[in-house]
Each structure stands twice: as structure tokens, then as C-alpha cells.
């Protein structure tokens, strides 16, 4: 009697889980489709880096910008101004000490990180799944969590996993768990998913030092 109840409970649980997983998959596709349709995105961010080598966390504040298909900019305003701008395959980094182009081909980690963001924002699920094990879940309060675990051995030596959280198109947080145990947490506020960049704005925003 007791045994049959356990079986029953398992079956019920399975019946509950299966539609939920299917639902989650549908939601991921739906979410990625919406991202793909987005005209552009901007947000303010606050990043806290917990680095074991340092006695205190590093904190950065600034803005992030995305213009489809492949422009990405992050402008750090505090504690010191710095920028990194991704245009196609070129990542340019600039701060008070100068500017330099980071060859993504020579920095697979930086390439994967920027690539994963672009895959999400472009709604490119096949590329995402090729590079990462993708887990997606939606909580009762509609907050979704997307967890990306790298597949490439090169990357797993450095990055354990990445999680993105949000509601609808509103990405609220990203956490990067490094293989070393270090952690980078980014919280996004003032997210605008209807941001449409004019050519002049693109010139101004997607460059070192702007906006």
C-alpha cells in the first residue's frame, strides 16, 4: 500500500514536471524570439566582483548598450571611467591608461563571454546550445533563470557557469561563476528594451569613452 503510494507520487510528480519542462522550453524559445525582435537595449549596471586575491570586492557602475546584430558596449563610470566596445569580432578596451584592441581569437574566454551575450540578445538558440549546456526555468513569480554551463574544455577551466535572471525581456541580473571560485555579479536597472539607436547615437555610444 505504502509502496504504491510512492509510485503514485512519482508518477504525479513526473506528470507535473514534464509539462513544466516543456513549458519552460517553450518559454525560452519565446523569450529568445522576443530578444531577437528587440530594436536595441540599454541599462544601468552595478557589478560586484568577489575576487579571492583581493581583501575587498571590486565594484563598478556604469551603462550597457546593445544594438543588433552585434554591437555591444559597456561604459564603466565608477570608480574610474573605462569602456569596452564590441563591434562584430573586435573588442576594444579603453581607460585612462590607453586603449587597445583585444583579439577575441587570442582570448577565447572573452570571446565566449561576449559571444554568449550576443547569442542571447540575438535569440540564437542553436549557437547558444552548441557552446553551452542550457538550463531554463521559470519560477512562480514569472522570474526566469537561464543557466549556461560551457561545453568547451578550454572554457570550463576558467568559467564554471553563468546565470541570467529576468522577467520578460527585462534582464535583471547576471552572475558569472569562475572556476577559481571568484564570482562577478551584475545587477541591471533601468532596462530599456525598446531602445532604438540612430546612426549618430551608434557613433557616439559604441565607442571608447562614450556616451
Amino acid at each position: 500500500m505504502r509502496y504504491s503510494r510512492v509510485v503514485e507520487a512519482v508518477i504525479v510528480a513526473l506528470l507535473l514536471v514534464i509539462p513544466h519542462t516543456a513549458q519552460a522550453q517553450d518559454d525560452l524559445d519565446g523569450l529568445l524570439t522576443k530578444f531577437a525582435q528587440m530594436p536595441g537595449l540599454s541599462a544601468d549596471f552595478r557589478e560586484v566582483q568577489h575576487i579571492a586575491l583581493l581583501t575587498q570586492p571590486l565594484t563598478h557602475e556604469g551603462t550597457v548598450h546593445f544594438a543588433p546584430p552585434s554591437r555591444l558596449a559597456r561604459h564603466t563610470l565608477k570608480p574610474a571611467r573605462s569602456s569596452f566596445v564590441l563591434d562584430a569580432s573586435t573588442l576594444t578596451v579603453g581607460d585612462a591608461h590607453g586603449r587597445r584592441e583585444v583579439d577575441l581569437a587570442a582570448h577565447p574566454v572573452a570571446a565566449e563571454l561576449t559571444g554568449s551575450l550576443l547569442h542571447i540578445l540575438a535569440g540564437d538558440r542553436p549557437s547558444l546550445e552548441k557552446a553551452y549546456r542550457v538550463e531554463f526555468s521559470v519560477a512562480m513569480d514569472d522570474e526566469w533563470t537561464l543557466t549556461l554551463t560551457p561545453r568547451s574544455p578550454t572554457l570550463t577551466k576558467v568559467i564554471e557557469r553563468m546565470t541570467f535572471k529576468g522577467r520578460g525581456l527585462n534582464v535583471s541580473a547576471m552572475t558569472l561563476f569562475e572556476a577559481s571560485g571568484d564570482r562577478r555579479e551584475m545587477v541591471f536597472v533601468g532596462v530599456r528594451t525598446d531602445r532604438r539607436y540612430s546612426p549618430t547615437e551608434i557613433e557616439r555610444v559604441f565607442r571608447i569613452g562614450g556616451p
Partner: peptide, 15 residues
């Protein structure tokens, strides 16, 4: 070193 750790190549530099 601090800048690099906080920058895009940070996870690599950390290794």
C-alpha cells in the same frame, strides 16, 4: 593586475 582582473580578460588572468 587589479584592472586586468576586473576587465574582460579577468577570468583568464585569474588562472
Amino acid at each position: 593586475l587589479k584592472r586586468e582582473l576586473g576587465g574582460p580578460a579577468g577570468p583568464l588572468v585569474r588562472t
